[in-house]
Design a protein around this nucleic acid. Structure first.
Length: 592
RNA sequence: GGUCGCGUAGCUCAGCUGGAUAGAGCAUCUGCCUUCUAAGCAGACGGUCGAAGGUUCGAAUCCUUCCGCGAUCACCA
């Protein structure tokens, strides 16, 4: 079915027969749209082995291929490029083979090693915001892509449910909350907790200002503000297991989880396993002791334990404090090992974490390798750029964030406005419409974020960022809906197989070529951990279909053979769009 | 200062394991709904690919230097 390996052989044969030399490899590329052809052989690299004029060599190889490979029907040579025209029969056969394949493009599960994908991992002191959305969408999508490419995948998150930031919200609630609950306030429960996080910061700033006016240095004031000291005391009480504090902690965390659940559900992401930092923050210490014995780490005079990474071009890095308490790195070492204990079949992990932690993960992976874990070779930091606003960075403390829930709601509203203006939804019930607006709004948001390279920063302008036209989620959904409309109106059994003896329209051929590269695009996306490749692929496919749709009649076609084929082709395009969008976590509507 | 990432059309982005005249969308302008959904299609306009060197038959892509933006270099997470 794949033509390329055959062509490699035949090109080699041709060169050997005519010039009596062996070329080690043959370079191909898809033929550019401006030229006639489907596959192009690049002649230039052969000039090292074959002396002569590239055009002449190309023509000779072309003659040979035309004669010896039945799939090649014509060729032309431009400069050093041999453009080959692949026969319609080849593409029609290809289509016949895959048209009824249900999971076309997807690899068999378990054909590759298992991977754990971590994403989201929020703090439990405030609601999720746009930055989390990027994280969630990326992590979820990469997990889906890995699954489709044959890996077994475990989705996980580590909930950062302890620490000083949590105590800040707790303390502020205690002090200013007057017993306010999600019920009594009517607020979404995670937003209520976030409100007190902001309240803490406000009170803290006020105290700093007060101290400064009393003549204290700024740094001194920041360190000694009473409310901060109290929060720190609360953290110590929590660690000591103080009943009162733990009770408050459980209650407020419960509120946050309830809120997160809603947001996750709205976003359409999920997890197979949750880890809580309150359970894992002590992990890793014994590993450090172990590594110390093995000589991976060393102890400084004050008793703290370090690793020397200067051979790798990095610094020394602390892994355990002098008083024996853990640092972030200690926990991460311990957690990684814990995961492999819990899921012994995993042979790799993906960490979806912002690029400000590039250095941390470089060090973490190095340490795990040095400790001798085989799976440490298969760790990947899915690093992504920040989401900035026109006004600058988002800061939860100061309340300058684009809230996740608000954003999703805004997308719904925009989708509703546009849909109403289009007026194509007669016959839909109120609930159906509402669901559809959500589907479209989310598609716009998700596609907008996933189509760009994760490494790049995103500048998000809430006023005008998310589009519904052009290279967007709704555009692709619209293409899908159009196809479904054709399928609904096709008043004959489209599954019957007919002889296909006609010539392909150029647009049909383009569509088949695009369908053909879906499996390799998926594999590439998996290797590169890149949903953007899937997004761009799907866009190209949709664009190609719309062009076809415009120029080639499907249902009005009188030739029954062609009509049958075009309906089947449209159906397949729809299926691929649906499958690809599923990898991005985006649903497709029957109508819109 | 060291390290890492980014810099492509007015804006948002593809292309980056080297290949033909650097591609899309938005915006601006022209056409196309008495054939299947105009959230569409067809076209016009728009570029010294941050700059300069180098490697190569060939560089947006690889190497070097420089410039700009960001992150990081905490016994914070």
């Amino acid at each position: 079915m794949d033509l390329q390996p055959l062509l490699v052989e035949k090109v080699k044969d041709a060169v050997k027969q005519m010039y009596d030399v062996e070329v080690p490899s043959v370079e191909f590329q898809p033929t550019r749209k401006d030229f006639e052809g489907d596959i192009t052989v690049v002649i230039f690299p052969m000039l090292r082995y074959v002396k002569g004029n590239p055009v002449e060599i190309g023509s000779k190889i072309g003659d040979y291929l035309q004669e010896h490979v039945e799939e090649i029907s014509r060729y032309n040579v431009v400069k050093g490029f041999l453009n080959l025209v692949v026969s319609d029969v080849f593409y029609l056969n290809f289509f016949n083979n895959i048209k009824n394949e249900e999971n076309y493009g997807f690899a068999e599960t378990n054909s590759k090693a298992s991977v754990m994908v971590e994403y989201s991992s929020p703090n439990t002191n405030k609601p999720l915001h746009l930055g989390h959305i990027r994280n969630n969408l990326l992590g979820y999508s990469v997990a889906e892509i890995l699954k489709a490419s044959g890996h077994k995948v475990y989705k996980t998150q580590i909930v950062n449910d302890r620490g000083i930031h949590i105590c800040k919200s707790m303390l502020a609630w205690q002090r200013f909350g007057n017993g306010e609950t999600p019920k009594s306030s009517g607020m979404k429960s995670d937003h209520l907790v976030g409100k007190y996080y902001v309240a803490f910061d406000k009170a803290y700033k006020a105290e700093i200002a007060q101290l400064k006016s009393e003549g204290k240095e700024k740094k001194e004031a920041e360190k000694t503000a009473p409310i901060l000291l109290e929060a720190q005391a609360m953290l110590r009480q929590w660690e000591a297991g103080d009943e009162e504090v733990v009770k408050l902690w459980k209650m407020m965390n419960g509120w946050v989880y309830a809120g997160f659940d809603t947001t996750y559900k709205n976003l359409g992401v999920d997890f197979d396993k949750l880890y809580y930092e309150s359970d894992t923050y002590l992990l890793g210490k014994d590993v450090v002791e172990d590594g110390l014995k093995k000589g991976v780490f060393f102890r400084k005079e004050d008793g703290s334990i370090w690793i020397d990474l200067s051979d790798e071009g990095l610094d020394e890095k602390i892994v355990l404090r002098a008083d024996g308490t853990a640092v972030y790195m200690t926990q991460d070492i311990g957690t990684a090992i814990q995961r492999v204990t819990d899921f012994p079949d995993i042979n790799g992990m993906v960490y979806t974490v912002g690029n400000e932690q590039d250095y941390h993960f470089k060090v973490l992976f190095l340490i795990l390798k040095k400790l001798g874990y085989t799976w440490a070779e298969q760790l990947y930091h899915l690093s992504y750029g920040m989401v900035d606003l026109p006004s600058g960075k988002m800061k939860s403390r100061e309340g300058t964030v684009v809230d996740a829930d608000d954003l999703i709601q805004n997308m719904d509203k925009t989708a509703e406005e546009i849909s109403k203006a289009q007026g194509k939804l007669e016959g839909y019930s109120k609930d159906e419409k509402k669901k559809l607006y959500r589907t479209i709004g989310l598609a716009a948001l998700k596609y907008y974020i996933l189509k760009v390279d994760p490494k790049k920063r995103i500048l998000f302008n809430p006023e005008e960022s998310v589009d519904f036209q052009g290279n967007t989620g709704p555009f692709i959904q619209y293409t899908y809906a159009r196809i479904q409309s054709i399928l609904r109106k096709a008043d004959f059994d489209i599954s019957t197989t007919r002889e296909m003896t006609f010539d392909l329209h150029a647009k049909e051929k383009e569509l088949l070529k695009q369908i053909q590269v879906f499996p390799e695009t998926l594999q590439l996306a998996a290797e590169n951990h890149s949903p953007a490749l899937i997004a761009n692929y799907t866009y190209d496919l949709a664009k190609e279909f719309n062009s076809f749709y415009q120029q080639v009649p499907v249902l009005p076609e009188v030739d029954q053979q062609k009509k049958q084929f075009r309906v089947q082709l449209s159906k397949k395009v729809g299926e691929v769009i649906q499958a690809a969008f599923k990898l991005l976590g985006i649903d497709v509507p029957e109508r819109m």
